[in-house]
């Protein structure tokens, strides 16, 4: 198992955002996480990536090592990259600088080299810029390398956020609603890019998504959260027919046939 979460709980005052969640993700898997708004999906990501500390008693193991109480930057350096629901790209920096920050943990030259502007620092800068330009071409933004990231369109910014996460050369990629707000065509473009990146770099991916099409078509397995608890897990086909999931998403009043029709059409 690449990621092994046990008994993960997070309380904010009286609210239990995530409650006793266990989650195991295999190397190379694409896992979907779904659930209604406020079900704790983003909190789960924030706990895995170190933005929040889990409540005592939890354990998160990544790649065989415990990362439960590490700080966000340490977790990132071990190979967990993520995107944010609200993107959080560095809008005042250029597109390529965004990627270079993603690559930060891999840039090797000392502070002294940087201060005096040594040839070594230069050579390294030139090398990583080259590398990032290749990644930019891969996601189709090479033309915009020197543009301020904030001047890109919404769709391009989503691609850039994905690129920044990929620049870290992660083993595990956490995507928080990567397709939110995209037009259907762009959703396809983004999904193709994610799958291409996954195959090329042998990634493991966890996707939070509300667009069911994305989850059903891309993910090998789906976990469902509701009120911070994991209520179901299985293949997309199994989840599609799960009574609890349907209730969580659509309420208890709907008839089964209506629900199935809705899910199939999605």
């Amino acid at each position: 198992m690449l990621l092994e979460i046990k008994n993960l709980t997070k309380r904010f005052g009286g609210l239990t955002a995530v409650s006793k969640v266990d989650l195991s993700v295999r190397q190379g898997e694409v896992r979907g996480i779904i659930g209604p708004n406020g079900s704790g999906k983003s909190t789960l990501f924030n706990l895995i990536s170190g933005v929040y500390r889990p409540d005592p008693g939890a354990s998160i193991a990544f790649d065989g090592k415990d990362i439960t109480n590490l700080e966000a930057h340490e977790i990132a350096r071990r190979g967990v990259a993520r995107t944010f629901q609200l993107l959080r790209i560095f809008s005042g920096m250029s597109v390529i600088e965004n990627l270079l920050i993603g690559h930060h943990g891999h840039i090797r030259y000392g502070a002294a080299s940087a201060v005096v502007g040594s040839r070594r620092a230069w050579a390294e800068e030139r090398r990583v810029r080259q590398e990032m330009m290749e990644l930019l071409s891969f996601i189709g933004l090479a033309d915009y390398a020197d543009m301020p990231a904030g001047e890109m369109s919404g769709g391009q910014q989503r691609l850039l956020a994905l690129g920044r996460a990929m620049a870290a050369r992660p083993k595990l990629l956490l995507l928080d609603e990567p397709a939110a707000g995209l037009s259907p065509i762009n959703v396809d473009v983004l999904l193709d890019t994610v799958l291409a990146l996954k195959n090329r770099f042998g990634l493991t991916v966890i996707i939070i998504e509300h667009i069911l099409k994305v989850v059903m078509e891309t993910c090998e397995a789906v976990s469902v959260l509701d009120h911070g608890e994991k209520i179901a897990e299985g293949s997309p086909a199994q989840i599609r027919d799960d009574r609890l999931v349907i209730e969580a998403y659509l309420g208890k009043e709907m008839k089964d046939e209506e629900v199935r029709a809705f899910l199939r059409s999605a």
Partner: peptide
Amino acid sequence: SDIGRALKALREDPLAAAASG
């Protein structure tokens, strides 16, 4: 250099910077 970029990333978004390592 990389140091300068890291400083700018702090200015832009400390949370995203931390998540980038």
